[in-house]
Simulated scan of single mutants.
Amino acid sequence: MAAHSHTHAHSHDGIDWSSRLTALRQADELDGEAHRVVARRLVRALPDNPTVLDVGCGAGGMSVALVEALSARGGGTVVLVDGAPELLDVATGLARSAASYETDTSTTTVHIRPVLADLATERPADLAGPAQLVWASNVVHHLPDQRAAVLGLVDAVAPGGWLALAEGGLEGKFLPFDLGIGEPGLQDRLAAARAQWFVRMRENTEGAVRMAGGWNTALAEAGLVEVTAFSYLIDHPAPAKQAVRDWAVNRLQWHMEVAGDLLHPADRRTVSRLLDPHDSAFLGLRDDVFLLTANTVYVGRKP
């Protein structure tokens, strides 16, 4: 990949997010229904014509769900913030398509505003505050100082507005316990390797500060009240559609890229068979691949 495609914005965590576009879009497709339910739940409490800030919007999966939820209740503004131009372009295109659809009764107006920004150095409040809802999904854990990042998000919330932070949950599963090749229990060893990689990624992030405690504590300490949380499932049981198998192949590939060196050589051999389209064990053709994961959303109101 050419050097210029690495945006400065995501270099803190060492991940080239533009190269992850296909995988992000795949995941968004599979998470679509769950995202719509979450978006409706979050916008229900908002005043008319609110501003919603999608921080670290990625490929736009939740952006689209938020646009649809606002359309259904008369309109508003969705501000998309991301540091990778390729992702922001895709998210903006998808959000604009979703904003212009007509309901049976009327044409609702949702305004879309994209903002290219590096969240480690730029304050969300300066970019697009104050918003009645700030949504940030799996973005804070990539920033050097997570507590400072939460404070920055809270600054962007209008008084009486809400911050919804999607972080944590349960590690996704997609492999049966015994694949018929290699030692059973590969999924758990992949998860352990990924957890080790994550700790290493945080340690190697320049200026990284540890944040002890849970996300609810961080929200309360940042001055939010009525702090609660809910979790939602993404559940595509086996036998799953091809899109799930394709996602699983990409996911396993990504596990290898980031944490392959932390796996036992025997597991690495198993994985290379699972990723080989010419092998009888190829993951993309297995009927027993599935997707089951739980995401947690922490919510708090600004007094």
Rank of each mutant, 00 (worst) to 15 (best):
D89C: 09
A91N: 06
G93L: 10
A95S: 12
S100W: 14
E102D: 13
E102Y: 07
T107V: 11
I112L: 13
P114R: 03
V115C: 08
D118L: 02
A120T: 10
A120P: 03
T121I: 03
P124Y: 08
A125S: 10
A125P: 01
A128C: 15
A128T: 10
A128M: 11
Q132M: 11
L133I: 07
A136S: 09
A136F: 04
S137Q: 11
S137N: 03
V139M: 04
V140D: 08
L143N: 04
Q146Y: 06
L153V: 05
V154D: 06
V154F: 01
A158E: 15
A164N: 06
L165E: 00
G172V: 02
K173F: 12
L175A: 05
F177P: 03
D178E: 05
L179S: 02
L179I: 01
I181D: 11
I181M: 14
Q187P: 08
Q187R: 13
R189D: 15
L190K: 00
A191M: 12
A193R: 01
Q196K: 14
W197E: 05
W197D: 02
F198M: 00
F198A: 12
V199W: 12
E203D: 14
T205Y: 04
T205N: 03
E206L: 07
E206S: 09
G207S: 00
A208D: 09
A208S: 14
G214S: 13
N216H: 14
A218L: 07
A222M: 10
A222F: 05
G223D: 09
G223N: 07
G223L: 05
